[in-house]
Design a binder for these strands. Structure first.
Length: 579
RNA sequence: GCCGGCGUAGCUCAGAGGUAGAGCAGCUGAUUCGUAAUCAGCAGGUCGUAGGUUCAAAUCCUAUCGCCGGCUCCA
């Protein structure tokens, strides 16, 4: 028996329970759809009065009442006419809409329990008595059939599990996740702020957050230089002409910040690609130079819709870690292979082991949505697939997810909420080389179009840092920690010795904080509980010229000289240990 | 952009027509302390912003900005 399918059935049946309860309590409500989802279910309702959290109690009570009546679920096959008649008599317009959109040869089934009837494919549990482990979570707006031109319905989300323990565990996990929320930690640890006075979606990195960001960026630069990339630095604004050539002005205009300067019009860059292409184009390129690998930590600005902003995950100005590789077509496979290795290596070094790899392909039903010939697509997609297979990587293929300009490989990080977060992306581009006329001179002196690869390992440093902060719950790996070592003198009699150690450790490049406040040791330890190492300095330590080393998760490690500690700490930093 | 909820001290929140309150943080003082919260005192707010209703608005209404949960979007 497949547990996943079983649980889906359970959740879907619970959704029916919810709809039944709502109809009993609020007659006249129209039903949308109510599927099983990860961790539970939802059901969409059309009702004039908004549901409030206060309604949840009575709805849940009614649902439990239906459970206790142990009503059997009954499947019934009906003709299209019967179905239309049934739901039209019930005034369920959205169901009529669904029926009318079903393929003509589709068998139509309805499921009943008690007086409740719903258009539904099933399957369901056999009786409402089997249900009962659920909790309504939230209500939110959702467009009918996901189209913003359609009316907006009210969606009630619920959690449902096979056992009460699993439900409790899930609810507990939600609570715990709140404590790791990067927006909360960002404030507590003074990592960053977003000031409504100055603009939504614009991030201010405070000293602590800026330190983490700088360390990650240094690592990023080091690793790119090691792999034969040249680092660029390009302007933040450019005349509209550039964006007309790139095509952004036609397709992406509503997301761009555009402003007049004299008689000219400028654009704040939403992407770095055109800039990098300009550098490529600055002179004739020879096949001998290929592959050329350009990379930049470029700050870009995009006018994202107001409702989509979300902490650091979705902002309007961010650092894009952009790389572009210009190569010949027969170098593509090798370059892609290197990019896949690089991406995986990089995010693993930052503590992300759980990756989901997606290969995004064109939609074969709509070749007209894409540029480039079907043969080129076919060959490129096969190349990407072959790279992943040759590395024995598990991946899923998604048709229709490709960009219009080429197929891509995406790496999804899994965050503490279990949500996927976009990580690395590797994209083939059939569009820009032609638009920008990017060529090189081949070995026989002829001109050829260059192949263009886009690669972003982190995508957005800001977005990545949100996931990074949550992944570590604010207790960062030693090498990125804003404070790596906290010095905790027990009384002010040890201040002088502590200051000496402070200087000594600082000189070796460590980020050290001397807590010289007149507070008790326990208080200081608590305050620095996220700092990797806390050095306790009391009377005994001064007398023996030592420090008592305490690690934030391993507890007391022992007493050692400052130079012994220094080499231990520096080694951990140099090796970029991630624990 | 859309639906719903919410904006009160640096932070977390209480107050629900009668003139603003707690804890933590901060400051001052006392305490000199051995591995996750020492005690006391002081100070701190045009209640997001702008209008309106009212004798009186943090509280009711309107608009606006922002935040939260989703939807949509992410050439």
């Amino acid at each position: 028996m497949n547990m996943t399918i079983d649980l889906d059935k359970y959740r879907h049946s619970t959704a029916h329970l919810l709809a039944d309860a709502v109809l009993q309590l609020f007659p006249g409500t129209k039903l949308g759809i109510g599927p099983a989802i990860e961790n539970g279910f939802y059901y969409d309702f059309d009702r004039d009065v908004p549901f409030s959290d206060a309604d949840f109690e009575s709805i849940e009570a009614k649902m439990r009442d239906i459970v206790s009546r142990d009503l059997p679920f009954e499947r019934q096959v009906v003709t299209r006419e019967e179905a239309l008649a049934l739901f039209s008599s019930l005034g369920q317009d959205y169901k009529l809409d669904l029926i009318n959109n079903l393929p003509s040869d589709e068998e139509i089934t309805v499921y009943r329990h008690g007086d409740f009837v719903d258009l539904c494919l099933g399957p369901h549990v056999s009786s409402t008595g089997e249900l009962g482990v659920f909790k309504l979570i939230s209500v939110a707006g959702a467009y009918w059939l996901g189209d913003e031109k359609n009316p907006m319905l009210q969606r009630i989300y619920g959690a449902a599990f096979a056992t009460q323990e699993q439900l409790d565990e899930y609810l507990k996990k939600l609570e715990e996740a709140k404590l790791r929320d990067h927006r909360i930690l960002g404030k507590q640890l003074e990592l960053f702020s977003i000031d409504e006075q100055v603009g939504a979606g614009l991030v201010y990195w405070h000293p602590n957050g800026a330190t983490i960001k700088r360390e990650i960026e240094r690592f990023w630069e080091d690793e790119h230089l090691k792999r034969g990339y040249d680092l660029l630095s390009t302007p933040h604004i450019a005349k509209s002409k550039l964006w007309e050539i790139s095509g952004h002005y036609g397709h992406y205009k509503e997301n761009m910040y555009i402003f007049p300067v004299g008689n000219e019009e400028y654009v704040l860059k939403p992407m770095n690609c055109p800039m990098h292409l300009q550098v490529y184009k600055s002179r004739i390129r020879s096949y001998r130079e290929l592959p050329i690998r350009f990379a930049e930590l470029g700050t870009v600005y995009r006018r994202e819709r107001s409702g989509t902003l979300h902490g650091l995950f979705r902002v309007r100005g961010y650092t894009c870690d952009d790389a572009h590789i210009f190569c010949s077509f027969d170098q593509v496979e090798e370059e892609i292979g290197a990019l896949v290795e690089f991406s995986q290596y990089f995010v693993r070094c930052l503590g992300f082991e759980n990756l989901q790899i997606e290969l995004s392909l064109m939609d074969p039903a709509h070749p007209e949505h894409y540029i480039g010939s079907p043969e080129v697509w076919e060959r490129s997609q096969a190349t990407l697939r072959h790279v992943l297979q040759s590395k024995s990587l598990e991946f899923i293929e998604i048709e229709g997810e490709a960009a219009f300009y080429g197929p891509k490989i995406d790496f999804q990080l899994i965050d503490v909420y279990g949500h996927k977060q976009q990580g690395s992306t590797i994209q083939l581009d059939f569009n820009l080389p032609e638009r920008f006329d990017l060529k090189y001179v081949n070995s026989s002196g002829g001109e050829e179009y260059v192949a263009l690869l886009h690669n972003a390992i982190l995508g957005s440093i800001e977005r990545f840092m949100a996931a990074f902060i949550e992944n570590y719950g604010g207790a960062f790996p030693m090498w990125v920690s804003p404070v790596q070592v906290a010095l905790l003198p027990i009384t002010d009699a040890q201040l002088e010795f502590a200051s000496q150690i402070h200087e000594e450790l600082k000189d070796s490049g460590l980020r050290v904080y001397l807590d010289d406040r007149n507070e008790k040791l326990g208080f200081k330890i608590r305050e620095h509980s996220k700092v990797p190492y806390q050095l306790v300095i009391g009377k005994k330590e001064v007398e023996s010229s030592c420090v008592s080393v305490r690690h934030r998760s391993r507890g007391q490690i022992g007493t050692m000289t400052s130079s012994e500690f220094k080499s231990l700490a520096c080694e951990e930093v140099q090796n970029r240990v991630i624990s």
